[in-house]
């Protein structure tokens, strides 16, 4: 499973319910193809930096999801079939962001682990039965810490190669004009 994020620009001239229908269609497409959505952001109607198909405004949606490596390709084909989607961009969540997230999570659980013994003592004071629980929680947390750097490293390696082929790059030629 790989973490991805996708942003779509939908024609803002379509009816509100059609707009919603497009988004739910994308959502169900992701979940039906072995993906799981972790967050959906609605950026709302924004003015486009340049006209696309004679349109000045677009509605932006940003979806973060996890899924198999075959999913983005299928998803982008789906976008191309959808006429109201003006632009789309699907990328692996950039490795520098993943790394920062992993670091943050690690430091958070580390500080949580420091706080743990206090909780343990308090629980031990109360009853013997409850005392077993904090220990289990503590071991869980340490295993989470060790697992995270590995994930980040693997994702890093794979990100570099695929990013090159993103749909952004063909557009680069326009920059030169």
């Amino acid at each position: 499973m790989q973490k991805y994020e996708t942003t779509i620009v939908v024609d803002s001239l379509v009816k509100a319910e059609d707009l919603q229908a497009t988004v739910t269609k994308v959502e169900t497409f992701i979940t039906n193809n072995g993906g799981s959505i972790s967050s959906i952001e609605e950026w709302g109607k924004k003015r486009l930096a340049y006209e696309i198909n004679r349109k000045q405004y677009g509605s932006y949606y940003h979806i973060q999801f996890e899924g198999p490596g075959s999913l983005p390709q299928l998803l982008e084909r789906e976008y191309r079939l959808e006429e109201s989607v003006l632009r789309y961009l699907t990328v692996k969540t950039p490795s520098h962001i993943l790394r920062a997230q992993a670091k943050k999570a690690a430091s958070e659980s580390a500080s949580a682990a420091v706080a743990e013994p206090v909780v343990e003592e308090a629980a031990a004071d109360a009853t013997e039965v409850v005392a077993g629980e904090p220990v289990a929680a503590a071991t869980e947390e340490t295993s989470a810490v060790t697992a995270e750097p590995d994930d980040a490293a693997v994702e890093e390696e794979t990100t570099a190669s695929v990013d090159e082929g993103e749909p952004t790059l063909p557009e680069d030629s326009k920059t030169a004009e």
Binding site: R87, P94, H96, E166, T168, E171
Partner: peptide, 19 residues
């Protein structure tokens, strides 16, 4: 490199102008 890529991606989505 990170900034460059991000700008180019933003341009594609019409969040930033090409010109």
């Amino acid at each position: 490199r990170l900034v460059k890529r991000a700008i180019k991606q933003a341009r594609h989505l019409a969040l930033m102008p090409y010109v």
